[in-house]
Amino acid sequence: MNKLDTGAASTSSVPSGKKASRAASYWKRTGMLHVLLLPAVIIALIYGYTPMLGIVIAFQEYEPWLGIRNSPWVGLEHFEYLFNYPDSLQVIKNTLIISGMKIVFQLIVPVLFALLLTEIAKSWFKRAAQTLVYLPHFLSWVILGGIFVDILSIRGGLLNRFLAVLGIDPIFFLANGDWFRIVLVVSDVWKEFGFSTIIFLAAIVSIDPSLYEAAEIDGANRWKQVLHISLPSILPIIIVVGTLSLGRVLDAGFDQVFNLYNPLVYEKGDIIDTFVYRIGLLDAQFSFATAVGLFKSIVGFILIVISYRLAYKLANYRIF
């Protein structure tokens, strides 16, 4: 009894000597595992965390030849500049609109596609379709940019020829701000939805088949089954994917915009990343670019925390 008692109470009232020996035995058991972990920790520290110290240049007037140590401190000047810069608000607005539309459609389209695909009986077709829609994910925007410029050309572009057949006047997609945003969203969804579909397909596959069997016995048709079984079953995943993508709301897709935009659509198509590229890299205003980057990270961080809470609340989903 005594022995047992000590064991049960060990967490609260063990003599320190015993605690130490417990720690020693813990280390004895897991020491090697920790050593194995060490390289990963070191790499994360060196490449993940140390560079973050560079954030300090957001508060300096950084000059490469002075280095971080000797560059003068300027406080929040770059942040003030950011919000007084005539283009800043427009650029932030563009980013939110483009990215918001992308998030919404990037959620709806893959879910619909996954639901439709599971309804197809022929498995060879299923597999082929899945592979085909998945392929564009691997193409780079440098290549796609060139292709889209040709397809959307107002002089003999594929799409405008098609519109001409329907009797619609040619549209200059890449020169009109509103159309440009639509082009960005549609082409991004086309490129990426196959990739997101995989997650939802996996979720649908893991639904207990007995639910469908029961529904069938109760006389539910396919449509009812989708509505009352498939959709509710994958709803938690939809919410998780959706809320987590909120954290990336300020990333509207640098590669894509950079390869498609032009002065005619700056007003509605210029996003934070392209803006930072022009100011920060082309003009070598490193401090200002870092300040914008830091601003983006802070907003992103807040959104990730919020979306994580939401995911937990709505879908009972936890990572940690």
Partner: peptide, 15 residues
């Protein structure tokens, strides 16, 4: 410091 912003303004306005 201002080159890119001014160039952008010019390209946009001209077009």
């Amino acid at each position: 410091a201002k080159q890119e912003m001014l160039l952008k303004l010019m390209k946009e306005s001209y077009l």
